[in-house]
Design a binder for these strands. Structure first.
Lengths: 203, 203
DNA sequence: TAGATTGTTAATCGATTAACAATC
DNA sequence: TAGATTGTTAATCGATTAACAATC
């Protein structure tokens, strides 16, 4: 069995989103063909994905919408609130702290961290703490995912702090490409790279 | 010949970045092996990538750093300033408007667009214009790349406006997955999806 | 020359797709 | 039953890697 990769899991998230929409419209069952159209993938891909995660349907009868949603919630950890922290509370970090979409998707930013005393504010609605208190906070609050929005120069230092903490996954917005290791997964989002890439493909 | 895909172009950007660093350190030549190590890919991949774009080296002598930088600048369109606009100047759009990294990478945000009169300010350092003036502005200023940071509900409407304008590439931050067409490339950056993905892989 | 590196061809790997038996 | 859909196996496709001849 091939293990689920990042793209597969992204498709699961997208199936879930479509299914929730379908449920709200009163649909009770759905065919692989319908989901395929909604996502722009093949029906075989949908069935393959479901098969990989043990999501079963009925020959001829398709899949039960509620069943799929429930199973996907479980697989994606959507039964409970997903709590994250944001390290680096500059412009970008701040924007993400109030990101409405996170709230709607059940993702809660429980705290921000920074080193600038002018920014630190433990009394704010989303408290901003000193970076030095991060390991303790993460351990105490059982947070395992962090967004990194620090300046390029601080990237490696902050990364080390995160690796030594209980953080298990990082969404890295710095241009420094971080590798991750067996304890900590890193996804790099390099905005300048994305723009550069678009320029290439529109030439 | 297989055409260059997104990942290949991303690697080109990363080679370029490493090469600029090497040049500043006084290096004049580099081997595929060195670049491979720097990026965490195989040396064969480096040579294959270069071969695909006609970047040549010398058997035994490696590649000339300056030559590679120059060629990559040309391929990636880095000889001139890369001008973009930002559509939707809420928290996230605003943060990206002042993104220092863009400046350092030669990417210039020439204007923002919004529909909220309270936000519109044509006199600001980066002017924010009314959305209705976008097609005219884009045509007059020859801008071809746009970042979309509008609310989910406005995504499809704004997308249509962009498709009818001279915009050729879009970096889409709304959760609505846009497909793109033969005239316009779309890269979707779905932050909530990225977070969800991290939660899956850290279970 | 001997040793090392490029550039390319062939092999491998993994993901997607096509096909179809099972079956409702 | 006949028709339609799942679930899985085999085929395809594309990207990465290994191997090596060419050659500096």
């Amino acid at each position: 069995m091939t293990a689920a990769n990042r793209e597969t899991v992204n498709r699961l998230s997208n199936y879930r989103k479509v299914l929730i929409k379908l449920k709200s419209l009163g649909f009770q069952k759905v065919f692989s063909d319908n989901l395929a159209d909604a996502l722009g993938v093949s029906a075989a891909q949908v069935r393959k994905d479901f098969s990989l995660f043990g999501l079963t349907g009925n020959k001829k009868g398709g899949y039960q919408v509620c069943y799929l949603i429930d199973k996907l919630n479980e697989i994606l950890g959507k039964h409970e609130e997903q709590r994250i922290i944001i390290v680096g509370c500059g412009k970008l970090g701040n924007a993400l702290m109030g990101h409405n979409r996170f709230v709607r998707e059940g993702i809660k930013v429980v705290a921000g961290f920074d080193t600038d005393p002018a920014i630190i504010d433990p009394e704010a609605r989303v408290p901003i703490h000193d970076l030095s208190t991060l390991p303790e906070f993460v351990a105490g609050e059982h947070v395992r995912i962090a967004i990194m929005t620090v300046p390029e120069g601080a990237a490696n230092h902050v990364y080390e702090i995160l690796l030594e903490s209980d953080i298990r996954g990082i969404l890295n917005f710095t241009p420094v490409q971080l590798k991750g290791n067996e304890h900590c997964v890193v996804h790099n989002v390099n905005l300048a790279l994305e723009i550069e890439n678009l320029f290439y493909f529109t030439k």
